[in-house]
Simulated scan of single mutants.
Amino acid sequence: MTRQVYPVYDIAGLDSRSDILVGSFAPYIGQHRKLHVPHRHSFYHMVYFTKGAGHHTIDFDRFEVRPFQLYAMVPGQVHRWAFEGEVEGYVLNFSPSFFHQFLLRPDYIEEFTFFQGQAQQSVLAVPEQMRTRIADIFEEMIALVPSISMLHLDKLRVLALRLFLDLASLDEPAKPSPLSNNIVLLRNFRKLVGKHYSELRLPKDYAALLYITPNYLNAICSELLGQSAGEVIRNRVILEAKRLLVNPRLAIAAVADELNFKDNSNFTKFFKKYTGTTPEAFRRTID
């Protein structure tokens, strides 16, 4: 039996009348029943659970679904849900351009830790004292949806930003304030890796783009991440390889070509060296 290509959802295909979709989660999963299949979005995706169980996999990291958890995902991440019993909560989807004309800095959203594409940072436990406020913000947004206008869209943007700022306060104690120069450099390094991982594989390439030495870049990564700059680059290549391998109709050789490896053999050796398994074996582990 031929397996289906995993879907890539666009916000326009989810019955949205604009660049934003907000609503209750139970009706949302009732309308979109293929959430158990690995898929990607071309938009930002946030889900806040008030009831439910099961698990959620984001970029091959598995998380247990619990009430009062919030999941935040960025465009391009591969994820899937596996629910047990009824689930309730809220969903918020918005396009990458939703805030562009509203904010002076188009990349402002990327400043939030939970919107930086790191799976382990995208799952938040909402404390009891904040739960009512988070639910109220979602309810305010839902009330604006039936009559979308420019004014209501701006109100939605303000409410969404209030939600993000409230959530950002959850890890405030762990963040140095103000941001140190090294943290800014690390953030910029990760952004560059996200854009150029397929063609730039050496720390010296990124150090040149950041106007620092390779040794300094390695020192920053070691201090803040506990890994070398080379590991950051390799991990991003491996992540994208796994994302591509989820597609059963994409040949291994095509994955190798997409990631700019010389040939299939070179890619297979790289993948096995850093994951302990071959691309073919990894693909067989995907349901």
Rank of each mutant, 00 (worst) to 15 (best):
182 N>V: 09
143 A>L: 14
126 V>M: 02
191 K>A: 14
73 M>K: 09
94 F>Q: 05
132 T>G: 02
275 T>C: 12
67 P>E: 07
259 L>F: 05
104 L>Q: 07
146 P>F: 15
281 A>S: 13
74 V>G: 04
156 L>F: 08
136 D>W: 00
52 G>L: 11
254 A>P: 10
213 T>Y: 05
173 P>Y: 05
198 S>A: 15
130 M>N: 13
143 A>S: 08
236 R>I: 08
224 L>Y: 14
174 A>K: 04
34 K>I: 10
12 A>R: 06
206 Y>I: 10
108 Y>I: 04
77 Q>C: 12
250 L>H: 02
83 F>P: 00
131 R>H: 00
84 E>I: 10
150 M>Q: 06
256 A>R: 11
104 L>P: 04
51 K>Y: 00
91 V>G: 02
238 I>D: 11
153 L>W: 02
33 R>L: 07
162 R>L: 09
12 A>V: 03
286 I>A: 03
101 Q>A: 11
186 L>M: 13
34 K>H: 03
275 T>M: 07
225 L>Y: 08
232 V>C: 10
57 T>A: 13
69 Q>H: 09
38 P>I: 05
242 K>A: 14
268 T>E: 14
204 K>A: 15
116 Q>D: 07
85 G>E: 00
72 A>S: 04
225 L>N: 03
266 N>S: 13
30 G>S: 12
2 T>C: 05
53 A>N: 01
155 K>E: 04
285 T>Y: 01
76 G>V: 10
201 R>P: 01
96 P>K: 15
171 D>P: 00
187 R>E: 05
173 P>G: 14
14 L>G: 10
147 S>H: 12
234 R>Y: 11
32 H>G: 02
185 L>H: 12
173 P>N: 02
80 R>F: 09
268 T>H: 15
73 M>Y: 02
180 S>D: 12
163 L>H: 02
157 R>S: 00
65 V>P: 01
34 K>M: 15
40 R>V: 09
228 S>Y: 06
123 V>I: 15
203 P>T: 11
244 L>D: 13
2 T>N: 11
191 K>V: 11
89 G>Y: 00
126 V>E: 14
287 D>V: 07
35 L>P: 05
93 N>M: 04
41 H>D: 15
236 R>C: 08
257 D>H: 07
47 V>W: 00
36 H>C: 01
264 N>H: 05
187 R>F: 08
71 Y>K: 03
232 V>G: 08
271 F>W: 12
204 K>L: 15
204 K>G: 10
1 M>D: 09
117 G>N: 13
186 L>I: 00
144 L>P: 04
97 S>F: 03
197 Y>V: 12
283 R>G: 01
174 A>R: 06
9 Y>T: 05
218 N>Q: 00
261 F>M: 07
137 I>L: 08
269 K>S: 10
119 A>Y: 11
30 G>W: 14
259 L>P: 10
286 I>H: 04
160 A>G: 14
83 F>S: 02
169 S>G: 06
193 V>D: 03
192 L>S: 07
138 F>K: 01
57 T>F: 02
189 F>P: 02
80 R>N: 04
113 T>Q: 05
224 L>E: 12
206 Y>G: 08
2 T>L: 06
34 K>E: 14
143 A>P: 04
115 F>D: 15
13 G>L: 12
239 L>R: 14
57 T>H: 07
277 T>H: 10
117 G>K: 15
67 P>F: 03
